[in-house]
């Protein structure tokens, strides 16, 4: 009996230690990023593009990367949405009774979700050459779209699955066509969930470096058309952190803070929304 208790004590303390270690690491990570970044952050950093080249110029800021990242992530989220929403609806309305196929589609999407972004990047690069595109905002948007489409579909799918079947049947009973059901009933019912899916995909899109490394290029300027290369925050961090010039590295730290804050806001918003959503779902 004694030995049993000692064993339980030991493992319980280990388990508690593991948990608090994880919390400590998160706090540590955020503190380090904030400490280095906030020091580097000022108004000029946020409102100027780099002067004299992003890798060597000591002046200027990271506006090019901030704007470029938003262009890229918004574009990709939009594209992924107009592909993803119909697919998620199709799965939950038209294929509702095809359990066999539904399971297989979900399985495939889950596996796609796990494909690393570097593979998407390499594939996007191949696609880009095939289409005769240069490294540009457009090529970046297309690649990131491929990356976030499975996330978009699966998270909307999870929400749509919770809609009771009775709702679908009563809408049919009123004589609605399937697409009317989709638009009038399903989208409205699942709206908060759909927005959460958008936020998640946006967050994934704006934070990814490996997919845009090949395809979006990098520049000191803010792109004015889809055919121009664009800077992005993750690459701003990646390229500028390795610079020998301290002032350039400051820009990397500043970019890290900006990116982290954007991600924090997005994931908090998604959390609040889904918490609110859960309140309205009656089990």
């Amino acid at each position: 009996m004694r030995r049993k208790n000692i064993e339980e004590r030991i493992f319980k303390s280990l388990a508690a230690a593991a948990t608090y270690l994880i919390i400590a690491v998160l706090l540590f990570l955020i503190v380090v990023i904030l400490k280095n970044g906030l020091r580097a952050l000022d108004w000029g950093m946020l409102t100027k593009v780099p002067q004299g080249g992003f890798y060597f110029g000591e002046e200027g800021g990271i506006l090019n990367a901030i704007v470029g990242s938003f262009y890229l992530a918004l574009g990709a989220t939009f594209l992924a949405f107009i592909i993803g929403l119909p697919v998620a609806l199709y799965m939950n309305i038209h294929l509702l009774r095809q359990r066999f196929w539904l399971n297989r589609i979900r399985f495939l999407l889950d596996v796609l979700w796990g494909v690393p972004s570097i593979v998407y990047g390499a594939f996007g690069f191949t696609l880009m050459l095939l289409l005769g595109l240069r490294a540009s905002l457009l090529a970046g948007i297309l690649t990131v779209t491929l990356l976030i489409v499975p996330i978009m579909i699966r998270s909307m799918d999870e929400v749509l699955q919770t809609i009771p079947r009775g709702l679908l049947e009563s809408a049919y009973a009123l004589g609605s066509t399937r697409s009317e059901v989709a638009i009038k009933v399903y989208i409205r019912q699942a709206l908060p969930g759909v927005i959460t899916a958008l936020l998640l995909s946006f967050g994934r899109g704006i934070g990814d470096a490996a997919a845009v490394l090949f395809t979006a290029g990098y520049t000191d300027y803010i792109p004015t058309s889809l055919n121009q290369p664009t800077a992005t925050l993750p690459l701003a961090i990646f390229f500028q952190l390795s610079s020998p010039i301290p002032a350039v590295r400051e820009r990397a730290y500043a970019s890290a803070v900006v990116l982290t804050v954007i991600i924090l806001i997005v994931s908090l918003a998604a959390r609040l929304l889904s918490a609110k959503y859960r309140e309205h779902v009656i089990k």
Binding site: K12, A15, A16, T19, I22, I23, L26, L29, V32, I33, N36, G203, I206, G207, D208, A209, A210, P234, L235, I237, F238, L241, A252, Y253, A256, L259, T260, I263, L264, V266, S267, L268, R271
Partner: peptide
């Protein structure tokens, strides 16, 4: 199994945030 429900619900956003932080930020760290 052991922790209070409050710790679990505190941990959920911690996990979400950690999972959402981009790879490149982990690299900086």
């Amino acid at each position: 199994q052991y922790a209070s429900r409050r710790l679990l619900s505190l941990m959920q956003p911690v996990i979400d945030i950690l999972a959402g932080i981009p790879s490149v930020v982990y690299g900086v760290w």
